[in-house]
Write a protein that binds this DNA or RNA. Structure first.
Lengths: 131, 131
DNA sequence: TATTGTTATACTCTATAACTATA
DNA sequence: TATAGTTATAGAGTATAACAATA
């Protein structure tokens, strides 16, 4: 578990380095990547996806919105809620981030077997289920 | 990789809950567990182990020292350096933390095969190597 | 000159509680 | 009453740069 924490730390650091020109923090990258993957979400949905509180996301979303990467669209169906929609430049940046993530994964996992990768997924799923 | 980040977040959160009575943060637990595992280390060695900067550790170590969990012993061999030594109560607390970590791991991994667990280790090792 | 560790600084992440608007 | 999201607040994590002491 200590190894897990170190690995996450190292990976986020490496990712930050590769995306240095975009000036994205880990939380910002995480939000963008999730929105790119799942399409427009509400704050509470994004909160569930990332495992962070809505109040934590407010600042992250503020920064992304100020930089023109996303828009908080009013949700006609529920006027308390917003749909977080990536702009064109937001989608471009998210694609860059996705690419960096995929590249790093490919580099790391290229020499490993599907069985090993399946084992990895089984373990992190199990860890999450007991947490 | 996003799943990795979510898992680490969830695990640290769960661990913090189980150790709530000890009032330890993730960084504090990490430092204690490393010192318990590897014995007395210098700040720079602990920095390497945990992947955090020495300047980051200063505050963590200050808190642990103020609570009587460790001592900064002068290193006779290199007078710029300290040996971070757990006190008796520090060792006790570290043992509690270790136990909570092991329990959580046992609960999660109990139903998984050695092959799956080996795959997990192979993947996080590979991720760390390319980071 | 280089290294060890601290200090000063600045920003981000994180959560809780109180709040507004809406359901 | 309950939920969605923000605001206010406070503490912790993070890194960089400058620094003192020592190698």
């Amino acid at each position: 578990m200590l190894a897990l924490q170190r690995t996450t730390h190292a990976v986020l650091h490496a990712l930050g380095g590769e995306l240095a020109d975009l000036h994205l923090t880990a939380a910002e990258t995480n939000a963008l990547a999730n929105l790119a993957d799942r399409g427009a979400l509400s704050v509470s949905q994004l909160s569930s996806e990332t495992g962070t509180k809505a109040s934590t996301l407010t600042n992250v979303l503020d920064r992304l919105e100020n930089r023109g990467y996303l828009v908080r669209e009013p949700d006609a169906a529920d006027r308390r809620s917003f749909r977080l929609v990536l702009t064109e430049s937001g989608a471009t940046v998210a694609a860059r981030a996705r690419e960096a993530i995929t590249d790093l994964e490919d580099r790391a996992l290229g020499s490993l077997s599907p069985t090993q990768i399946a084992g990895f997924h089984a373990v992190i799923t199990a860890l999450r289920e007991v947490s």
